[in-house]
């Protein structure tokens, strides 16, 4: 019987997109956040071009508020695949005056990432950036194309997207314009986890249950870090937690969890009653928060 499972079909689709983009663009780059989706992307890119090495670098936008585990993992991954790593520092944009730190206590640098990203894409003359965005993540992403056109300011225009039919991808663009390419658009969180298991992909340790000092702020469990200032009446406490997504330490909420193996994590995801972005403080700011950030050039 000539049939592929859904994971094999999704893998094949992602590999197809990688190969297509590399042929259509001059200078692509993988946006690497250190999270499971971008780690999966790197794995797929490796499969797409093997036995040649991945024919483009990784770009990490460093907010300066990273989990140390993320950086360590990133550096090992770069060594393993023998790829070039390019890093854009949000702090550099702040020092340059192109980005301004949010006011108030515990500023998030999440929105500032877009500024550094666009600066870095311009500086590196990257004309296409692969992202690990998935359409199931958030409703603004449900209408995203595989090849997503950005104007010369890096902005997304959701009302004027190119139709995308069959497997024919149009990467034509004018000078200064660019694309975001999303090879795992059609994957769900569950698909990613199952694929990680099937392919035996390594993940940073903080995806698994561990003891960490955290503060519970309005239901969001934030890790103790130099960037997190306690409010009056708050205190840190040791808890058994893990992370479902990785971002800035100042906004990425942990979940209480005993899941210390991949199988237990998958079981937990299957039973989960909240979407993974549900514990991201940045999406909760308003109902259209994600759409607004995307228009400005966020991943």
């Amino acid at each position: 019987m000539h049939a592929l499972s859904h994971l094999e079909q999704l893998e094949s689709e992602a590999i197809f997109i990688f190969r297509e983009a590399v042929e259509q663009f001059e200078n692509p780059v993988i946006l690497f956040s250190g999270g499971k989706d971008s780690i999966t992307l790197v794995h797929l890119a490796h499969k797409a071009f093997f036995p040649a090495k991945i024919p483009f670098p990784l770009l990490h936008i460093d907010t300066g508020h990273n989990f140390p585990e993320t950086l360590e993992f990133r550096d090992n991954l770069v060594k393993k695949y023998n790829v070039r790593l390019d890093v854009g520092y949000v702090q550099d944009s702040i020092d340059r005056g192109t980005a301004r730190e949010e006011k108030g206590i515990n500023p998030s640098r999440n929105t500032l990432q877009s500024i550094t990203l666009l600066e870095k894409l311009e500086e590196g003359k990257y004309d296409a950036a692969f992202g690990g965005g998935r359409r199931d993540e958030e409703k603004a992403r449900a209408k995203e194309r595989f090849f997503s056109h950005r104007d010369e300011f890096g902005q997304w225009d959701p009302k004027n997207q190119r139709p995308e039919l069959w497997n024919l991808f149009n990467g034509k663009k004018a000078q200064g314009e660019s694309f975001r390419v999303f090879p795992i658009s059609n994957w769900t969180e569950m698909d990613v986890w199952q694929y990680i298991k099937k392919e035996n992909i390594d993940l940073p340790s903080i995806y698994f249950s561990h003891e960490r000092s955290i503060v519970n702020r309005g239901g969001v469990l934030l890790a103790e870090s130099p960037y997190n200032i306690l409010l009056a009446g708050e205190h840190y406490e040791k808890q058994i937690i893990r992370y479902r997504t990785l971002g800035c330490m100042t906004i990425t909420g942990a979940i209480f969890s005993e899941a210390d193996t991949l199988d237990k994590v998958i079981e937990e995801v299957a039973a989960a009653r909240e979407t993974e972005r549900g514990n991201r403080a940045d999406d909760k700011r308003s109902e259209a928060a994600m759409e607004d950030r995307k228009k400005q050039g966020y991943f």
Partner: peptide
Amino acid sequence: DGLKAEREQGITIDVAYRYFATPKRK
């Protein structure tokens, strides 16, 4: 109804992709 304009006008104006799975199929 994903995009702001759609929520305001109450109509779907672009292709949106949705996902669900049962034990048999995605």
